[in-house]
Design a protein around this nucleic acid. Sequence first.
DNA 1: GGATTTACTTAGAATGATTCTCATTCCTAG
DNA 2: CTAGGAATGAGAATCATTCTAAGTAAATCC
Lengths: 147, 147
Amino acid sequence: MISNTDSSEALAQRLSDSGLRSTPQREVIYNVLLKRRDHPTAEEVFARAKPEMPMISLATVYNCLEALVQCDLVRTVNFERGPTRYCPNLHPHAHFHDTKTGATHDVELPEGLIDQVKSILPPGFEASSVEIIFRGQAHATSTNPTP
Amino acid sequence: MISNTDSSEALAQRLSDSGLRSTPQREVIYNVLLKRRDHPTAEEVFARAKPEMPMISLATVYNCLEALVQCDLVRTVNFERGPTRYCPNLHPHAHFHDTKTGATHDVELPEGLIDQVKSILPPGFEASSVEIIFRGQAHATSTNPTP
DNA sequence: GGATTTACTTAGAATGATTCTCATTCCTAG
DNA sequence: CTAGGAATGAGAATCATTCTAAGTAAATCC
């Protein structure tokens, strides 16, 4: 289990690597994301951060999320024109958007899949990233937690 | 070469199959999309339609595009939070977003790739669609037209 | 250690894309 | 031919996000 202090220090490190400062607001925001990895929107993050830090403003939430994205601790996901959602970045993964419930699930990518997909690009195209989004329905089989 | 009349009739057919009417506005909008397949935004479509139909309104452009999407003649593409872009739907294809120029290129998908990508889904996940977005730079090799 | 620059936060205004409202016009079926 | 549902057009409204300005805090320089 990762202690709060560990993630704080990792956060501070990552931020300063990108020339950014560690602040109480950024820690709170990051912890909110780590606590429930359900791809919340900025508004949802705002709502979850408020109990911990009642004076925090929505603009700051956006700023902090942006900072976390900058230092590669967090990734953004967009479905159509819906609000941007945020997930703390672990492995390379795709997203599954359940059109029935609106939930977003991470889908682990097997080793090499990204390279294989990249290989379909015609000559002259250099992809720095590949995003894969599934849309459909997730029928809960046994236990299926998206922590 | 597809004549204007052919595409008009195909359009009328597709629309009525979805319980929608064929209208002059919808024809103009569809033709605008067919003429330059550069993934224009609604505003761009609006600008291109105006010379043909000066009274058309932006709301109607949105309505028409929505109608075309409904009857599967047009597909939407979204990059981050940028405005929605529209492409007349041919084969299944991925999109390559050139981060330098902002241009969008269609990337044909080899037979079976989509199924293969779908096969990485854990049990219980039924994907009705898969979207693949590349980001990077396209270095023009020989001729490379995205009409 | 104090001054100064620089980054960060905040609240609210501003923006941009899209949707909504509603009056009007157009088809289409009866 | 006429009633009723669709589609259009103009502008207002909405929603997510960004910008602005003013105030704070933290790091650097002397």
